[in-house]
């Protein structure tokens, strides 16, 4: 039996369903709930069983013909992971550096990562955009955005 894309997906889902079912036992029940026809653990147990059933079905069935082959190069994978890392860093930096600075850095570094090397473009498409967007939120739409924590140091 070859480990096709489908079977790999099936195995992965089997693992997820089994883990989900295992943790269903940790859901606290109210006294007497065990004797009720439906309680907080019921749905998770059924879903886990259904998930395991479908996983075995996918693993056991004849694999479907592969879909259109989309070649994904390593460099594009790195780009994607880089952007995700920048997004994660944005969430960490936002409370500390504040909205305008974090947004400017996030946008400029993302433009750079995707291949923009012109300094003027990097600056003009990030800093004024972040400032205008921030002013629009705080002054026009009256949305409260917490100031940067480092200001209070």
């Amino acid at each position: 039996m070859n480990l096709t894309k489908d079977r790999f997906g099936g195995l992965l889902f089997l693992l997820v369903s089994a883990t989900y079912g295992y943790y269903a036992a940790d859901i606290p029940l109210l006294p007497g709930d065990k004797f009720e026809p439906f309680h907080a653990q019921t749905m998770p147990y059924w879903l886990s069983s259904l998930g395991i059933f479908f996983s075995f079905l996918l693993i056991g069935l004849k694999p479907a013909p592969p879909s259109e082959n989309e070649s994904i190069s390593n460099s594009n994978l790195v780009l994607m992971l880089g952007l995700m890392a920048f997004t994660f860093a944005f969430s960490i930096a936002l409370p500390w550096l504040g909205f305008p600075i974090t947004t400017s850095i996030f946008l400029a570094s993302s433009y750079w990562l995707l291949g923009e090397r012109r300094l003027k473009m990097l600056l003009f498409a990030s800093v004024p955009f972040a400032l205008v967007f921030w002013l629009l939120l705080t002054e026009v739409l009256d949305v409260y955005i917490a100031p940067a924590r480092f200001i209070f140091w």
Binding site: D6, G9, F13, V16, S17, Y20, Y23, I27, P28, L29, L30, D33, F38, H39, A40, M43, P44, L47, S48, L50, G51, F54, S55, L57, L58, L61, A64, P65
Partner: peptide, 30 residues
């Protein structure tokens, strides 16, 4: 060739929906 996968994804969506306090008893789940 997508029916089983779509069913699995439906179950996955239902699983994600159970995260948080239970709407009926208020018990925390996952």
């Amino acid at each position: 060739g997508q029916v089983i996968k779509a069913m699995m994804m439906t179950v996955f969506g239902l699983m994600i929906a159970t995260v948080g306090n239970d709407v009926i008893t208020g018990a925390p789940r996952y």
